[in-house]
Design a protein around this nucleic acid. Structure first.
Ligand code: MN
Ligand code: MN
Ligand code: ZN
Ligand code: ZN
Lengths: 139, 139
DNA sequence: TTATGTAAAGATAATTATTCTCATTTATGG
DNA sequence: CCATAAATGAGAATAATTATCTTTACATAA
């Protein structure tokens, strides 16, 4: 994924293309496993040592607002970010804080079919994602 | 749900029965919609004005450790607690921070069947819960 | 080109949920 | 009751995040 891709994405959203925004966006994509702000900062500082922490949080927020990133729910007091904005599920390790993506169109179809028949009372579904908790076998 | 119920539950888990623990446990059960620590404190202070905030957090933690409460994932920087420890799913309001419980054995069966056939590579599933995001119709 | 306006970044202070420390109090088994 | 470990209260400390304010970058118009 080339540098131009990030610049182009930012431009399309009407965001000014700044080195900081490119670096932060690129960091989340490259780090790839739902990094925390801290992990993102560590990564960026290797090539961009003077970036301010406040800038990182502000940029992350605006990338989330513009749907280039998503926040990932977890039960710790630390926010994590996801570069995969298309519909997908998450595998949560029950022993560590590892979170992996899980895509499964067949499963989505199954669940959508299910809720086509069975409505939830007084609730209009917009999106369903699964939190699959378990253990990763080695690696 | 009587006061003795809470005392009994605590005792069964080997936890000393203190007025604070009973009050906090009771608060989460009565408040019932996944309250924050702050909401719990407000509720308790009505009858128990001198309880310390640190105590509330410590008790909540130990109730979670002993599986009398669960933490609820959300994408805010505030922890929420759940008195329903049996397997269930959550309806998240996309506009407010309302979270409701959703139980559905049929759906669980469907999903379990699905994963009986289709294994996830290098991952052993322990639990699957759905985050269903959408809109509550009035009320 | 230079001036000007605006948005973004940097530095750092403030906020806030949560955790920690430690002196004091309390629950519980004997 | 007593002893004692465990729990609570008060307040300080932490840490993630947010806010404030100044400086910088950069686009556009004079
Ligand atoms: Mn925090
Ligand atoms: Mn916080
Ligand atoms: Zn993801
Ligand atoms: Zn619940």
């Amino acid at each position: 994924m080339t540098n131009d891709f990030f610049r182009e994405q930012l431009k399309q959203k009407g965001l000014k293309v700044t080195p900081q925004r490119v670096a932060i966006y690129e960091a989340v994509v490259n780090l790839n496993n739902h990094p925390t702000a801290e992990k993102i900062i560590d990564y960026i500082r290797r090539n961009h040592p003077n970036i301010a922490i406040g800038t990182v949080y502000k940029v992350l927020d605006s990338l989330v607002d513009n749907n280039l990133l998503k926040k990932v729910k977890n039960d710790k007091d630390i926010m994590r970010y996801d570069a995969v904005v298309s519909h997908h599920h998450h595998l949560y390790c029950s022993e560590t804080d590892r979170i992996e993506d899980y895509e499964d169109e067949l499963l989505d179809k199954l669940i959508n079919e299910y809720f086509k028949n069975k409505k939830i009372e007084k609730f209009e579904i917009q999106d369903i994602t699964l939190q699959i908790t378990g253990k990763f076998n080695n690696n």
